[in-house]
Write a protein that binds this DNA or RNA. Structure first.
Lengths: 186, 186
DNA sequence: ATGATAAAAGACAGACCTGTCTATCTATAA
DNA sequence: TTATAGATAGACAGGTCTGTCTTTTATCAT
């Protein structure tokens, strides 16, 4: 377990997340993390490899965040709402620059690009998880509700990139509550 | 009114939209549109200038599309739903690669970047228009509904870039109907 | 027909990109 | 102590980027 590798991943990730994958060059990463270029290429085969490694790490952190939101609750409805409350908090955080997966898919629209693939796998799992929670909740139109919530989540993430910290997603927790209430006929 | 300018704008725009602003270079644009580099730089001061011109043209086309959806209807509720029906149709079109404004904001996150500014102005107007329709409709929580619909619209656009033509926004018209029905207490 | 305008083709500059390489230094382990 | 591994600094290659410039050709109005 090399700490150098983690340092590179951390610095590169922060730069990618804030400025975009194409906007950040290798030279910028090695300058910012104060390592040699050969060191970077010893740990990562290529820039794409580094991007994929970052996205996979973000995927792990995303699910830690997601599970961290749901586990305190014991029923699907509260778990679902907890996710969107956590999302509302996240999109109000100054260090949140959107969603690494959406940015990756936007910059690498080719679905066969390795970065796009990792991003897409994450989103497909999110869809599946939301759908499972909606079904477990016994919502009238579970699939439709899950898709609505999914679109709203990504809409929230992209709103952060457009508007920064003061974005139209600062009420997304309450929005989810309304949609869920409507779907279960409360 | 130069047709050369329009041709450049058309070719460059299609490339930007499909592959991204940073991914497409000037050389690619002049090769694809079969013009000389000097010709491009006679019509556009810089690449950023070309990007801004494209985004402004897209803004015009966006509002033509939006108004084209609303004008056949005479009440705010039907107008609102018509927009999302049109959106559903749009995100199922193979030549739709997402939203030029979201892509621009994603690739140029700096809010002072000229491309980001044009994109943001468009989105702010969309928010305002949706909000006006929700208020005119007499929705219970008009601002909240407008924001929900806004987030869902951008979620739909970004889903196109992530998933292509088979995306989770292919029911967004019905989703909007449900949300509106819920908000007006039908 | 002639002068002016604009376009085409492409060389060019200077910067930046990814990725490889060499040479040197340092730390650790046998 | 000495060998090995990994780090550093940075030159370098080959390509691409934006933007400028020159030269030649075509178009158009007078």
């Amino acid at each position: 377990m090399s700490s150098v590798r983690e340092k590179i991943l951390d610095v590169a990730g922060n730069l990618f997340f804030q400025y975009g994958y194409r906007a950040i060059g290798i030279d910028m990463i090695i300058a910012e993390s104060q390592i040699a270029k050969a060191t970077l290429y010893r740990h990562f085969k290529s820039k794409d490899d580094l991007i994929v490694a970052y996205l996979e790490e973000m995927n792990r952190q995303f699910w830690a965040w997601f599970d961290g939101a749901t586990t305190p609750h014991d029923n699907p409805k509260d778990q679902l709402i907890a996710v969107f409350d956590a999302l509302q908090k996240l999109v109000s955080t100054p260090t949140c620059y959107g969603c690494p997966f959406l940015i990756a898919a936007s910059e690498f629209p080719d679905p066969t690009h390795p970065g796009h693939e990792v991003a897409r796998r994450n989103k497909e799992l999110v869809q599946a998880r939301l759908s499972a929670l909606c079904h477990a909740m016994g919502a009238k139109n579970a699939d439709a509700l899950a898709n609505q919530l999914y679109l709203m989540m990504d809409g929230a993430f992209i709103a952060v990139r457009m508007y920064g910290v003061n974005n139209p997603a600062n009420g997304v927790g309450e929005f989810a509550r309304q949609m869920v209430a409507c779907a279960i006929g409360a």
